[in-house]
C-alpha cells in the first residue's frame, strides 16, 4: 500500500561529508572548465582575460586542481560523510538489473514522460551511470592533467595521448554537466533532489517516488532505532 505524505515530511539523504564532496567537485569543476576553455580553443581565449589572461588562468587551473584533489581525498576518510561517499562508489559498482531497468526508461523521464520502473536504491540507474562517468572522467582528468603539468617527466608517447584524453573527458563531462544542471534545476520532478544538497533533507514523497527501496531501508532503520530507544527507556 502506498504511504501518505504531508508536504512537510522529510527524509535525511546527504551527510555533510557527502555535500562537501559534491560541492567541492561542483565549484572546482566550473573554475577548471572556465580556465581550461582558453586552452581548448582560441574562440574562448579572450574570455580568460577576466581572470588576467591565459597565464593566470593556467596557474589558477593548477591550484584549483590540487585543492580539489586534496579536499576530495581527505574528505573521503573523514567520519560518516567519508563512509557514505565510499559507499556511493561501491553502490555504483553494484550496478544490477533494477538499475539497468531505470537506465533504460531514463530518456522518457528526462523529457517528462513517466514510465514505471522497479524500486531504486539510494541512487537510481541513471544517477549511477552519471556518477560512473564522472568518477572515471575525473580520475583520468587528474592523472592526465598532472602529466601535462610535468611533461618532461613523462614518456613522450604517453604524453601525446594524455592531451587528447584530457580534452576528450573535459568535453564529455561538460556535456554530462549540462544534463545534470537541467535535472537539478529545470526538471519539474527531479529538481526536488537539490534540497538534499543544501540542507541534507529531501521531501519524503519525492524519496518514496524515486528511491522506494532506499526509502523503506531508511524507514526500517529509523524504526529499529526508535524501538531500541523505547527498550532502553523501558529498561531504565
Amino acid at each position: 500500500m502506498e504511504p501518505t505524505f504531508k508536504k512537510s515530511d522529510k527524509i535525511f539523504r546527504f551527510t555533510v561529508g557527502e555535500r562537501v564532496a559534491h560541492w567541492s567537485h561542483a565549484i572546482s569543476f566550473f573554475i577548471l572548465l572556465f580556465t581550461g576553455l582558453g586552452m581548448i580553443s582560441m574562440f574562448f581565449r579572450p574570455a580568460v582575460g577576466i581572470v588576467g589572461g591565459i597565464d593566470v588562468a593556467r596557474n589558477i587551473h593548477r591550484v584549483v586542481a590540487v585543492l580539489f584533489v586534496v579536499v576530495f581525498v581527505v574528505n573521503l576518510f573523514i567520519g560518516e560523510g567519508g563512509r557514505n561517499v565510499r559507499a556511493w562508489v561501491r553502490e555504483i559498482l553494484a550496478f544490477d538489473k533494477k538499475d539497468l531497468a531505470h537506465f533504460m526508461i531514463f530518456p522518457f523521464e528526462f523529457f517528462g514522460l513517466h514510465r514505471p520502473y522497479p524500486p531504486q536504491g539510494k541512487f537510481n540507474g541513471g544517477e549511477k551511470f552519471n556518477s560512473a562517468l564522472m568518477i572515471t572522467g575525473m580520475v583520468c582528468l587528474v592523472i592526465t592533467g598532472f602529466m601535462m603539468w610535468f611533461p618532461t617527466a613523462i614518456p613522450r608517447v604517453i604524453l601525446q595521448w594524455a592531451y587528447p584524453a584530457h580534452a576528450g573527458f573535459a568535453l564529455l563531462l561538460t556535456a554530462v554537466l549540462l544534463a545534470h544542471l537541467y535535472l537539478s534545476l529545470l526538471h519539474p520532478d527531479s529538481n526536488q533532489a537539490l534540497k538534499g544538497m543544501f540542507n541534507g533533507y529531501v521531501p519524503a514523497k519525492f524519496a518514496y517516488e524515486h528511491y522506494e527501496k532506499w526509502y523503506y531501508k531508511v524507514k526500517s532503520e529509523e524504526n529499529v532505532k526508535e524501538q531500541a530507544k523505547r527498550e532502553i527507556a523501558a529498561d531504565g
Binding site: I40, S41, F110, F111, G112, L113, Q160, W161, Y163, P164, A167, G168, A170, L171, L172, T174, A175, V176, L178, A179, L181, Y182, L186, H187
Partner: peptide, 30 residues
C-alpha cells in the same frame, strides 16, 4: 593522437555539448 585530438575529439566534443544543450531545451519544452 594529435589527429584524434584536434580533428576528432575537439569537433566531437563540441557536438556532444551542443546535443546536450538541445536535449535540455527539448526537455524543458516537452
Amino acid at each position: 593522437s594529435l589527429t584524434l585530438w584536434k580533428s576528432v575529439i575537439h569537433p566531437l566534443g563540441g557536438v556532444a555539448i551542443g546535443a546536450a544543450a538541445l536535449a535540455v531545451i527539448a526537455g524543458v519544452a516537452s
